[in-house]
Simulated scan of single mutants.
Amino acid sequence: MKAVDVERQLLVALISKFTDHIQLDGNGHLTMDGPDWKPIATLPILRSLQPETDVTSALDAYTRLKTFVETAETGQLRAANLGLTPPQGVHFVDGGDNLFYDFVNTDRTLTELELAGAELQGSILDFGCSSGRNIAVITRAGLDRLKVFGADPIPSSIEWAKANVPGAEFAVSQQEPPLPYDEESFDLAYAKSIWTHFSPRAARAWMEEITRILKPGGHFFFTIHGPHDVANRLVFDFPRPRYPNIANGEFPDKVSFLEAVIAGLRGDGHFFRPYTTVRTQGDLGKLEGATTEDWGLMFMTTEYLQQHILPPGLELVRFTPAATAGRLDGCVVRKSSSQRAASSTGTHRSSLRRVARSWLPRRG
């Protein structure tokens, strides 16, 4: 059977099971555009540069701002506080537009939090912030109701962000919990393309840590690989990783990998395989003593997320297929307002710590 016929069969099997988890356009076709979003950070930045500009949509605001950053002279960019460029020798997640600033996905993240009922104020943590490209958008937008923090395990990324991204506080995290923050430190948190890579037990351990640092009633946005991402790989062949670099060459090509992913999603709701070496991802290779035991490619359904990853006290309040990057599903969870009362006895908190320890990633 031809590969294209196999891929067509896989797509039918995927859509028949997960129709509600796949983003389609008005004509019923798979799309990489994602849902509409609000220019929460982009518009204030654009207005500070071009006060009289008429903006018709979030995409229009982004396009105009992107054009300014691409065409302005160096002195203009520095005067506009938009002079950062992708760092050399420091981990940087390239969004495909050759900009340091991740305008669209920052807006999408803030939009998802707001639509989930969160108030965009108080303390907010970028978990896995890398060199701070999302934080730089938030701080430049002048969203002064937010106090911004960033944490990442790569020391060189944090050092660069501290030196180049003003208006935020940065800290080096570790490969396993805890984070260097007190309990109930944050009103909001977000993590882009992190739970897309954790093994199930690492995903559970770190979700418990998010529970610990969130205030009661706090919201956390994060992304996962789901059926929409699988459909993207089938239809658009995007992304296009070297599949033999996964799980010691278990999958020689895209079709064999996606067959296994779809079987996992349809069967028990998830699929995980570790990367073969730390060199597969640029950031992991920069971390001393890193291993891939709990870091690779993770796909899951919302049912699996709720039954096996979310600890007591976190409730899934919003799910959006293809919320960021045109393919990653967005999830917003909320910490119970009664969590403080429950933990004050010590019983609930200690039981959660036992669960967390059982899920801790083992690092050599």
Rank of each mutant, 00 (worst) to 15 (best):
F319C: 13
E293A: 14
G346E: 11
G364N: 12
I262T: 04
E208I: 15
M1D: 08
V12D: 11
R145G: 15
G117V: 10
T211Q: 11
V90K: 04
F18R: 00
G122P: 04
K254Q: 06
Y101G: 00
Q174N: 15
I135N: 02
P200T: 07
K286D: 10
P86D: 08
R133W: 04
T211W: 13
S156R: 12
D94I: 10
R334G: 08
A322F: 08
M32Q: 14
S131N: 14
T139L: 10
Q174R: 13
G226M: 03
M1S: 14
A325Y: 07
P321E: 03
G282Y: 05
D94A: 09
V278T: 10
S16M: 12
T42M: 02
R327T: 07
T276R: 05
G282A: 15
T301V: 04
L82R: 02
G167P: 06
D20V: 01
L82E: 01
E169D: 12
D294Y: 04
G364Q: 11
T292K: 01
Q23S: 14
P244L: 11
E119H: 12
A191M: 08
Q174K: 13
W359R: 13
F127W: 06
T111S: 14
T109F: 00
R357V: 15
L146T: 13
N98M: 08
V332G: 08
G289T: 05
S337A: 14
V261P: 04
V235C: 07
G128F: 02
T106W: 03
S156H: 11
R201V: 07
G96I: 05
V255A: 07
S130A: 14
G282P: 03
G75Y: 06
A202E: 00
L77C: 12
L352D: 09
V278Y: 00
K192M: 14
F186N: 05
K192S: 14
A263Y: 00
G269T: 02
N245V: 11
P178R: 04
A136H: 03
S344M: 12
L258N: 05
R201G: 09
R242I: 15
F103S: 02
L265E: 01
V235D: 02
W359T: 13
E208P: 02
V12G: 06
T345P: 00
D237G: 13
L11T: 08
L46I: 12
D283C: 12
P177L: 06
R273E: 12
L284G: 04
D329I: 08
R204E: 06
D283V: 07
T139D: 10
P311R: 06
A205T: 05
R279V: 09
T67M: 09
E52K: 09
V93M: 13
W37S: 13
